[in-house]
Design a protein around this nucleic acid. Structure first.
Lengths: 346, 346
DNA sequence: CTGAAAGCGCTTACAG
DNA sequence: CTGAAAGCGCTTACAG
């Protein structure tokens, strides 16, 4: 690796015997410059291996062609898919994604936002770590770049004037639909399994679950809602909590697919057969859901499409900073697979 | 969102009645400026909500604090984990990750690299799309930023003087160990299942598989090596190809974990019980491997640690551009789980 | 300890 | 159609 002095517009201009301005016009495909001149300049750029310095151009133009993307858990396929969708849509519009992975740590998230904001992105897409406080976020990013929050709400109340857009799933309706379907299949003792009760998405899904039970005139027993970290591993480990009650459930509405997949393994460990003598639903429809054993009935959130949507919402907002704050709630649809058998007639 | 004029060093300097240079020195924690002055300036920055413009600083200093990361398939947990590790290590050193997701498309990869290089990253980490040609990559990134290739080799022969570092797994030794273990368990008819034969990693793993068979004086039948796309879905679909031969295998060394997990589902579909009457090994040790049904015997590649390692190698190279090209091959270790039973005595 | 000036690599009116 | 000059927001010798 030789360290050649960086080739700049000046070098090209000099070599072509024209001014920097002319070369710049060629770069931006201005019709002002003559086709012959254009070709001459372009050939010279090719020859010298010129690379455009977008940072310099952005500085001068006072624009930004980057968007920051901060993800709470990239190792969860739901968010990995989301990130892929974001990058896809941003790339199509000529933006570059600045990535940050917080691993559910608010401290790391703060650090990331602080560092990313110094790159003056055109906007920030934040899939927040659990318990991210809105004031904390505002402190670190200020009000310089539009913010789009994905998936879960920030905790706390924002200061006056601090606004952000929101993109989320219709958690309540989704959980309601899943629970309703289990009721239709004859289940009467249905648990809500997994997730942290203090996260907005879990709270909303629990509400949907309760809606459906109440609509069927079934008493909601608080002990039928079991809390676990929203990961496969934790869901697996705590499966026995389902059977620690007097009348054990025959079905579980799970917080998300990771939890559902973990629970199914836990059930197998306890001698139950999900899809045969126990019904399980998930939430998200990650790729593994379709190929699980048994394939998982779940709510289709299409994370990659959500990513594209998030990117578009953000760019829209960056173009119209003063239009009113948006909160987009995406409906989710039940995808039925083999994990939800009829209730066995006891 | 009000669009306040961006606060700059000048604003702070003006408000404090000092020069821009002084404020800059405060920013960079120079001991030259008096503690009182420092405090005064810092308070003013706080008050006005000043955000450092790193792009401007980098331009002036002719340095870069970004690293480009281009990933072939972010929805594969192996690469998602890798990306997490990269971001973690880069963040710790004050770098920001520019992300690109190529989805295994060389065209998209070219576009991404072309766009990312304009941000003049300090280096590029590339987990290449299948069939990425080295000349093609050189054409788009030139020789401006050090390149670290991860996981698979680029195809074609590089031009003289185009050099890059490489970080990969010891594919051959890994597959050899897995195959050897199956032999020890009494298996004699062992297939190599999945992957594209023209990818370097698949080629190497097949060689390791053949090494072990030859060492056991077992004839290598070309029909025992079955090609599929390296995804769960494709591996599932083509499972019957294993049994299309006269003497069907009792075990399969799989190209990677995704393939192994897909194959196990395909086996179940065909009435086989992986872990009971058929042995399966994977490669990578993605999180799902441990919690599969049955848990998967695989080769531990620790993708997150690989990500951290890649970041460190690259930064090392950026600091020492003329040191000789490195090719780091990481050994992988067999993690035995329930997917590899003894051969049944036929 | 602080200020005035030049410059990083671009773009953009403004002349011509 | 092309050039000279100013400026984006910083840093860095160089004076004082």
């Amino acid at each position: 690796m030789d360290k050649p002095r960086r080739i700049t517009l000046n070098d090209i201009a000099l070599a072509c015997g024209v001014s920097r301005a002319t070369v710049s016009l060629v770069l931006r495909r201005s019709p002002l410059v003559h086709a012959n001149m254009r070709r001459r300049v372009e050939a010279e750029m090719q020859r010298q291996g010129y690379v455009y310095n977008r940072a310099a151009a952005n500085l001068r133009q006072r624009v930004s062609t980057t968007v920051a993307l901060v993800i709470n858990d990239l190792s969860n396929p739901f968010f990995a898919e989301f990130a892929t969708g974001v990058d896809e849509a941003l790339g199509a519009k000529g933006y570059v994604t600045l990535l940050g992975s917080s691993n559910e740590s608010p401290a790391r998230q703060r650090q990331l936002l602080g560092s990313l904001i110094e790159h003056h992105p055109a906007g920030i897409i934040l899939s927040p770590a659990e318990n991210s406080d809105v004031t904390d976020v505002e402190m670190t990013i200020g009000r310089h770049a539009p913010l789009l929050v994905f998936n879960r709400e920030l905790t706390g109340t924002p200061d006056t004037g601090f606004e952000y857009d929101f993109l989320g799933l219709d958690n309540r309706a989704g959980a309601r639909v899943a629970t309703k379907r289990l009721l239709e299949l004859g289940h009467r003792r249905i648990a809500f399994y997994g997730g942290h009760a203090n996260s907005s998405s879990c709270r909303e899904r629990r509400l949907g679950y309760q809606d459906a039970l109440r609509a069927a005139s079934i008493q909601v027993d608080p002990s039928s809602m079991i809390e676990t970290a929203p990961t496969r591993l934790e869901a697996n480990v705590h499966a026995d909590a389902l059977f620690a009650v007097d009348a054990a459930p025959t079905a579980a509405v799970c917080y998300n697919d990771a939890v559902a997949l973990g629970l199914m393994l836990g059930l197998a460990r306890l001698g139950r057969q999900p899809g045969v003598d126990f019904a399980v639903t998930g939430f998200d429809n990650i790729p593994e859901a379709a190929v699980g054993v048994p394939p998982l009935t779940t709510l289709n959130a299409d994370p990659r499409a959500r990513g594209r949507q998030a990117a578009e919402l953000l760019l829209q907002r960056a173009a119209a900073p003063s239009s009113p704050r948006q909160s987009v709630i995406v409906p989710v649809q039940l995808t039925e697979r083999e994990s939800t058998p009829h209730a066995l007639s006891a």
